[in-house]
């Protein structure tokens, strides 16, 4: 189907883009990679009358590292992250997770910022961003602000970004020490979206006792969430001693599970247990082997 007609704008800097959003109010929609928005527009599930395309703003693209943290421009594509030698060396879970998104053509256009702001309940980046304690920088008509990933995913398809704001970049602190990070997902066989995906980070001391852990789940409920109860159950324990099993059992507590034609609520609840366990085991393996990260998907 053809979308409704719209005015098309291609600002060349962030300030111009923000000005356009302020001028047109709720009628305007930001276009990033377009792989969520354009299909929604074609189905006329959304009918913006003004499109503000961010694809011609070079400063929104790219990966920089400084003082032990990584900053990624919001318009950086999944493919750029997937192939980044710098990220493979510094935080390999990012390229590994990027490889699991959609297909090569989707990754060539789709952007990390678009995925985060769209807050699709089955998106991959929301879980990874939560597990990595990501900070998201927003720019609006009244200036800049920074939001933590924990406060960013508000509800179904709803992020903390206001209609007149733009996500410009995200910053991720690179964890140091004996750290393992994993992202494991059960992918929908047609779309590749996460029916359930779990990102897990574990930090160990020299005796393999868990000092810190972050677990984040996508695909299960209205939005990606952390499994705080499970994280607490791991801290201070030897992860080889059964605490992973207990944490995985508790991972779905507090989630109002989605059910659809492909996976029932009960099935997603079970997937959360299984994939939390798999992700924690993979993260533990990564931490103890020194490899740092693992990611995999099952169809």
């Amino acid at each position: 189907m053809i979308t409704e007609a719209f005015e098309f704008h291609t600002p060349e800097d962030v300030q111009s883009a923000v000005a356009l959003l302020s001028e047109h109010g709720p009628e305007a929609k930001v276009l990033a990679g377009g792989h969520s928005l354009v299909p929604l527009m074609r189905l006329r599930l959304t009918t913006p009358s003004v499109i503000v395309d961010l694809n011609r703003i070079p400063q929104l693209c790219g990966i920089t590292t400084e003082n032990g943290s990584i900053t990624i421009g919001a318009m950086t594509t999944h493919a750029t992250i997937e192939h980044s030698a710098e990220l493979k060396a510094m935080l390999p879970v990012l390229p590994a997770a990027a490889t699991l998104i959609g297909d090569p053509m989707v990754r060539n256009r789709g952007t990390i910022g678009g995925s985060l702001v769209h807050a699709d309940p089955a998106g991959d980046w929301p879980a990874v961003a939560l597990a990595l304690d990501t900070q998201l920088q927003l720019v609006g008509p009244h200036g800049e602000r920074t939001v933590r990933a924990d406060d960013f995913f508000v509800d179904l398809l709803t992020s903390a970004v206001e209609p007149d704001e733009i996500l410009t970049n995200i910053t991720i602190p690179v964890p140091t020490g004996r750290v393992g990070i994993s992202y494991q997902k059960f992918a929908h066989p047609a779309s590749g979206y996460a029916v359930t995906g779990v990102a897990a980070m574990v930090m160990l001391d020299d005796a393999d006792v868990c000092i810190d852990s972050r677990i984040a789940i996508t695909g299960a409920g209205a939005m990606a969430v952390r499994a705080a109860e499970s994280e607490a159950m791991l801290r201070g324990t030897d992860l080889n001693g059964g605490s992973i099993d207990h944490a995985a059992e508790a991972a779905g507590s507090g989630i109002d599970f989605l059910g659809d034609i492909y996976a029932s609520e009960e099935y997603r609840e079970q997937l959360v247990r299984v994939y939390t366990k798999r992700s924690l085991i993979a993260a533990l393996r990564a931490a103890t082997s020194g490899h740092g990260a693992e990611a995999a998907k099952t169809i």
């Binding site: 098309f8 377009g34 354009v38 299909p39 395309d53 694809n55 053509m105 060539n108 256009r109």
Partner: peptide, 13 residues
């Protein structure tokens, strides 16, 4: 130089 799905890109882009 990149494979894209041309049903999901506007010509103006």
């Amino acid at each position: 130089d990149q494979a894209v799905k041309s049903c999901t890109v506007f010509a103006v882009q």
